[in-house]
Design a protein around this nucleic acid. Structure first.
Length: 416
DNA sequence: CCCTCACTGGGAGAGTAGTT
DNA sequence: AACTACTCTCCCAGTGAGGG
């Protein structure tokens, strides 16, 4: 059976998150989305950990379900958290985010006790630790060899392993001999697999994709798709699959241009640039004269050693536009509009497996039974990539416009 | 109803101002 | 010159007030 998994998200105890990020709502929304396995996020936070202990029941295979409801109505939870390391190394300030997986609540308790001795886990769901990422990796694996660490949103400028502002040029530079313990990278919203395939160094790493959601509605905007039999599914199987790519079918991706750090630029100066333009300007903003924020495309350009994406070997990928955005565009309003939410819920409740059914699985004929012709047209056009993109930069989200017939001419000029 | 915009804050380092 | 003590910066994106 196909399992869709989203490992990276945050609870209501993290900064700037929705207060609906609790277990009941997470379960409910995961069902609506069509997500089968959801990370808990934030397991280092004392209050969230308490909730996990109280409200989850172990299945004995490293996965958990909600207590007090029928087995069928609960998705699977897997224990995850994100940790932010801020420290100085080789003369530069490093800010690295790591995604951590744990095999059970007992191990999480041990890890939390270990970290609590020297660090404050209370301040945020995503704790900020003044520790070298390598040392943290050592501690995590020392607490249990079954723990698993993946550098998060690997390319974003400010908080990432390869980030232009805070990162390194290789995993060895960051983790030293411990780099052997890293098997995967999270690509983040601003990069997709083909961009990463341009750097042969990354061939040995599995690319995973998660939502980093701060609100239930953003769950699964990126995700991972596995193929397991119902009997074999377990924490260990999932980790093994990430390590070996066996049973790892494909990832679900944002269009990278839609991410906040695709191109170079300055938000305040309202200027965005392609890597070659930035290089011509020697990295200096022509408006304010200060260094530009170097984006994901530029960083990959600098490190890449080939043009052609790799064929085969890796899991495939599918690019999606969130259904809410498609609906918003069919009505010509923002995706936060009330009408959009109503239509969205109405539509996905008619599907068998939620939003992913509509975006990935259902054929046009079937879609027409549950949605208006125009929304169906939007879904089909999104699948075919009949879109125009204006790329994000320096913290500004990019925009994807679906090219409906009448809007084609208007947006043609803006196509990147 | 819809959209825009200011506001929120932990933690670490960098930068600056002030004191001795 | 060397120290302390501030302030400022960045991240995150949801939230709710206020205006059209």
């Amino acid at each position: 059976m196909r399992y869709i998994a989203d490992f990276h998200l945050h609870s209501k105890y993290s900064r700037a998150t929705s207060r609906e990020m609790d277990l009941r709502h997470l379960n409910q929304w995961a069902k609506l989305k069509g997500i089968d396995i959801l990370g808990t996020g934030d397991f280092t936070h004392p209050l969230w950990f308490k909730e996990l202990e109280e409200k989850l029941t172990p299945l004995g295979n490293g996965l958990y379900q909600l207590k007090d409801i029928s087995k069928k109505s609960s998705i699977y939870f897997i224990l995850t958290t994100e940790i932010s390391c801020i420290y100085k190394k080789s003369g530069k300030t490093r800010r690295i985010h790591l995604l951590v997986f744990a095999p059970n609540l007992e191990v999480v308790r041990k890890l939390n006790q270990r970290l609590e001795k020297n660090y404050n886990l209370h301040s945020d769901g995503r704790p900020i630790l003044g520790i070298d990422a390598k040392e943290l990796l050592k501690i995590i694996l020392d607490v249990s060899p079954e723990n698993f660490v993946v550098p998060a949103h690997a390319w974003t400028p400010w908080y990432a392993i390869f980030g232009s502002k805070s990162g390194f040029d290789s995993l060895e530079e960051c983790f030293g001999e411990m780099a052997l313990e890293i098997y995967a990278l999270e690509t983040g919203l601003s990069s997709d697999p083909p961009m990463n395939w341009r750097w042969s160094y990354l061939d040995k790493y599995t690319l995973i994709s998660n939502s980093d959601a701060h609100s239930p509605e953003n769950l699964g905007r990126e995700a991972n798709v596995f193929e397991f039999s119902d009997k074999e599914i377990s924490y260990q199987k999932i980790i093994e699959s990430i390590k070996t790519r066996k049973n790892f079918v494909f990832t679900i991706e944002f269009f990278p241009e839609e991410g906040k750090y695709y191109l170079d630029g300055h938000r305040d100066c309202q200027i965005s640039l392609l890597p070659k333009e930035t290089k011509k300007l020697k990295g200096i903003c022509p408006v304010c004269g200060r260094p530009l924020t170097i984006g994901v495309l530029h960083r990959i350009d600098d490190l890449a050693d080939r043009e052609a994406p790799r064929q085969g070997g890796a899991p495939g990928f599918k690019s999606i536009i969130p259904l809410k955005e498609i609906i918003a565009q069919t009505y010509g309003v923002k995706k936060t509009a009330k009408k959009v939410k109503e239509k969205y819920l109405e539509l996905i409740k008619k599907t068998e497996k939620g939003e992913f059914s509509a975006l990935l699985d259902l054929e046009e004929k079937e879609l027409l039974k549950i949605a208006s012709p125009r929304i169906v047209q939007g879904i089909i056009k999104a699948r075919k990539g009949e879109i125009a993109k204006s790329a994000g930069y320096d913290g500004v989200y990019g925009e994807i416009k679906i090219l409906f017939e009448e809007s084609k001419r208007v947006f043609q000029e803006k196509i990147f």
